Simulated scan of single mutants.
Amino acid sequence: MNRQELLSRISINPHVCFGKPCIKGHRIWVSLILDFLASGMTVTEILEEYPQLEQEDILACIAYGAEMSRERFVEIPIDSTV
């Protein structure tokens, strides 16, 4: 899966989670997953805690964090569906 395909798994909707970047179709913040990884949780542990997620969702959070650390604007279309 390439970077763009991974980033397509992230959504931003001003009506969901205060407009914070989330895993598409879930109310799980990208920052939460990155915090889990930073605290030492493994991908397997996160997936056990959140069985509705897939490994690619975790990789998408990492890809989003990597893009943001480059101080580049990451174009994520605003999802206006409620």
Results as ranks from 00 to 15, higher is better:
81 T>A: 10
68 M>R: 15
74 V>M: 03
2 N>F: 08
81 T>H: 07
72 R>F: 06
4 Q>G: 00
13 N>Q: 09
35 D>I: 09
1 M>H: 14
15 H>P: 00
42 T>H: 03
28 I>Y: 07
82 V>C: 08
5 E>T: 14
16 V>S: 06
77 P>G: 04
2 N>Y: 10
46 I>P: 01
63 A>T: 06
9 R>Y: 05
14 P>M: 10
37 L>R: 04
72 R>W: 07
56 E>D: 11
42 T>V: 04
27 R>E: 12
70 R>K: 15
62 I>A: 01
32 L>C: 02
54 E>F: 10
75 E>S: 07
64 Y>D: 05
70 R>E: 13
24 K>L: 13
63 A>H: 02
43 V>F: 08
13 N>D: 13
51 P>A: 02
70 R>S: 13
79 D>N: 15
63 A>S: 08
2 N>R: 14
8 S>M: 06
20 K>A: 14
9 R>W: 06
15 H>E: 09
56 E>A: 15
4 Q>R: 14
66 A>P: 00
63 A>N: 01
16 V>E: 13
58 I>T: 00
43 V>G: 03
22 C>D: 05
57 D>M: 05
62 I>N: 02
47 L>C: 01
74 V>Y: 03
67 E>L: 09
49 E>L: 11
8 S>D: 14
77 P>L: 11
36 F>W: 11
26 H>V: 06
69 S>T: 01
63 A>R: 05
1 M>E: 10
38 A>K: 14
30 V>N: 10
5 E>F: 04
7 L>R: 04
70 R>L: 15
73 F>Y: 11
69 S>P: 00
56 E>P: 00
38 A>F: 06
77 P>Q: 12
7 L>G: 04
30 V>M: 08
9 R>Q: 13
14 P>F: 10
58 I>R: 00
48 E>R: 09
11 S>L: 03
50 Y>G: 00
71 E>H: 15
79 D>Y: 04
60 A>E: 03
5 E>C: 10
5 E>K: 12
44 T>D: 13
29 W>R: 15
22 C>A: 07
26 H>A: 08
40 G>N: 07
22 C>V: 15
24 K>R: 15
67 E>W: 01
17 C>S: 10
43 V>L: 04
64 Y>L: 05
55 Q>P: 02
73 F>S: 08
78 I>W: 08
